[in-house]
């Protein structure tokens, strides 16, 4: 059964009371919240996610609710709690839904060391996956949203889960986090895309989440093979251009921007090494999303590299 099988009022009621347990690729979340915006976001953006029986095992027991003090009477706020533990400061109530999204990222990033977790978007077509790292603002979420509206499968817009050992990519498809101008850009680029309510004045500016394609959610158990690591950069007026980049430097960038590379020791080194062996690495500058999608559609399979490793 999917979340869409429940009427919105039922979703809100369950969230207020026992909570809702649902599966996102390899993890199960148990969410409780009395906040209407959270119920609304769940109905709109998580409609295609499978419900799990409550009373089983959930990876993350999370709640978004009012903070346990009098502040709510002064200025309504929401606080995230992970099993009774509140790692972050409360935020204005208006940001309750984005807070849920960020908090769930945090749960995955801090509790899933069975994967090497890179800070990058990842999409797949024809069995081959493109990993899109890059600093905030470089446009990886925008490009990711554009690609998944043109037939690429969403694995994640934020967390690339790499299987330890064989370096296969594990999907954890979630709503795509769009910021500021990208919200309008994606509305124009893909008028059919479903977007949640925009939260203004967050730490990241205005934020809205885009519903992932139903097909990406349904195929969340299907692993993908890494083929390219591409650093996107939006550049006004630029023609879409791929520029090869050094694998060793890409390795170091990915390691430094990983959530858990430093915990994984020699195994993490080996896994990231295999990932780099398997991938062609590029810098990519673009200004038009249509051109960018065409460039990605034209990517050839990665060159077989001479794999060298030494004990």
């Amino acid at each position: 059964m999917k979340i869409s099988a429940l009427a919105p009022a039922e979703v809100a009621r369950r969230l207020r009371q026992t909570g809702i347990v649902f599966r996102i690729g390899p993890v199960t979340a148990h969410l409780r919240s009395p906040v209407p915006a959270v119920a609304e976001g769940l109905c709109r953006l998580y409609a295609d996610y499978p419900l799990e029986e409550s009373g089983g095992f959930a990876d993350f027991h999370v709640a978004i609710g009012p903070p346990p003090n009098l502040r709510r009477w002064i200025r309504p706020q929401a606080v995230f709690s992970f099993d009774g533990h509140t790692p972050f400061r409360p935020l204005p109530l208006e940001q309750a839904f984005p807070m849920f999204e960020w908090s769930l990222n945090w749960c995955v990033a801090s509790c899933c060391n069975q994967y090497l977790i890179l800070h990058a978007a990842v999409v797949e077509k024809g069995g081959l996956a493109a990993i899109l790292p890059g600093p905030p603002g470089a446009g990886k979420s925008t490009l990711c949203a554009a690609l998944v509206n043109r037939g690429w499968r969403l694995l994640s817009d934020e967390l690339t889960l790499v299987s330890m050992g064989d370096a296969g990519l594990v999907p954890i498809p979630r709503p795509v986090n769009l910021k500021n101008d990208s919200i309008e850009i994606i509305r124009r680029f893909a008028p059919g895309a479903v977007l949640g309510r925009t939260s203004h004045d967050t730490q990241k500016g205005s934020v809205a989440h885009m519903k992932p394609p139903a097909d990406s959610v349904e195929r969340a158990d299907e692993l993908a093979r890494p083929a390219w690591v591409i650093f996107p950069r939006y550049e006004k007026g630029a023609t879409a251009t791929l520029q090869p980049r050094s694998k060793a430097q890409t390795f170091i960038y990915a390691a430094e921007n990983s959530f858990n590379y430093s915990y994984l020791g020699a195994q993490g080194f080996d896994t990231l090494g295999r990932l780099m062996d398997a991938c062609d690495c590029y810098d990519f500058s673009y200004s038009s999303l249509d051109e960018a999608v065409a460039t990605f559609d034209g990517l050839g399979p990665p060159a077989e590299t001479g794999i060298q490793s030494h004990a």
């Binding site: 509790c111 430093s262 994984l264």
Partner: peptide, 17 residues
């Protein structure tokens, strides 16, 4: 069962580190 086992192993990784 695999789901709880993952949490055990995940924290074990942290302890080894």
């Amino acid at each position: 069962p695999p789901a709880p086992r993952n949490h055990l192993l995940s924290t074990r990784t942290l302890a080894d580190k």
